[in-house]
């Protein structure tokens, strides 16, 4: 890996450290790179820092207006140290000054669709991103309708979010971020709480989406299907990374970090 921040990595993270407001360390010196077009899984036990990490990718964290020494990007030198850029998206440093451009490039799907769907109708919600990006109302509506059609919710445009099923709400959220045409998708537990058919549909959708994907998940079977590379996060540290089959097939590693070798890999090993 090159240390040059201008190399064409889609995501480049260097020594990312973050503390929660109560002082607990959430991320401790995370280093990772994701190449353009790559699909990477972020796995680890609950509380490992996966969601917190994703929130850093488009600058939602660290919170603005709070002490930079309490929650900061960069090398943890202790106190009152100068901030070091820790994340670059397509070579652009994630910072308040670049927030608009970074958020256009990174589409963040939240775990709970009710956190993301806030507008009165599905169409209004999906058009929210394009309107914020400066599209006219006519173009925003057209983009929103196209995005809904991509996730097979074209007939739900005028419905209210609370009348959608959980799977439909999840797809509406995905339409909301696709409408912003991001080059990088950061997906937080995309298949959590979905029934088997909904899960399968969502996996198919994700597979067909172009661009770079970073997926935080406990669904290790899905990781085997979609992701070439897997990064294991534990207590805020990236403790292992490599080819998904190698990482997920390492039973000692999986046990050590509270994970489990996917059944499909176990069965294959037994058969062979």
């Amino acid at each position: 890996m090159s240390d040059d921040s201008t190399t064409p990595w889609a995501v480049r993270v260097h020594d990312l450290t973050y503390h929660y407001p109560d002082g607990r360390a959430a991320l401790r010196g995370v280093d990772l790179n994701v190449a353009e077009g790559e699909c990477v899984a972020l796995v680890g036990p609950n509380g490992a820092g996966k969601s917190t990490f994703l929130l850093h990718l488009n600058g939602i964290l660290p919170e603005r207006g709070r002490s930079v020494t309490d929650h900061h990007h960069g090398i943890d030198f202790g106190h009152k140290t100068k901030l070091h850029a820790a994340i670059w998206i397509n070579g652009i440093e994630v910072s308040p000054a670049n927030a608009r451009e970074v958020r256009r490039r990174v589409g963040l799907l939240f775990q709970d669709p009710d956190d993301q769907l806030f507008a009165a109708t599905v169409l209004e919600d999906v058009a929210f991103g394009p309107l914020n990006l400066g599209f006219s109302k006519i173009d925003a509506k057209r983009i929103a309708l196209e995005s809904l059609a991509r996730v097979e919710l074209g007939d739900a445009a005028d419905r209210m979010p609370h009348h959608l099923s959980f799977g439909e709400r999840k797809r509406a959220c995905l339409a909301g971020i696709l409408a912003c045409s991001p080059s990088i998708l950061a997906l937080d537990e995309p298949t959590a709480n979905l029934d088997p058919r909904g899960r399968r549909g969502f996996i198919t959708l994700m597979r067909d989406l172009p661009g770079t994907k970073l997926i935080a998940t406990h669904d290790l079977e899905m990781v085997l299907e979609l992701c070439e590379r897997t990064i294991v996060l534990d207590r805020g540290r990236a403790v292992a990374q490599g080819d998904s089959r190698t990482i997920l097939g390492d039973s000692a590693l999986m046990d050590q970090y509270g994970l489990e070798v996917p059944l499909s890999l176990t069965m294959r090993t037994k058969i062979s």
């Binding site: 929130l55 488009n58 939602i60 608009r100 958020r103 256009r104 990174v106 589409g107 963040l108 939240f110 709970d112 009710d114 956190d115 993301q116 806030f118 507008a119 169409l123 209004e124 058009a127 929210f128 991103g129 309107l131 914020n132 990006l133 109302k137 925003a140 509506k141 929103a144 909301g176 971020i177 912003c180």
Partner: peptide, 23 residues
């Protein structure tokens, strides 16, 4: 807590404090 997450989700889609709607 949810209001904070909703706010974060709005920021993630480029919200800058101005409420823009289609109609």
């Amino acid at each position: 807590e949810r209001s904070e997450r909703v706010h974060a989700a709005m920021l993630a889609r480029g919200w800058d404090g101005t409420v823009r709607t289609l109609d």
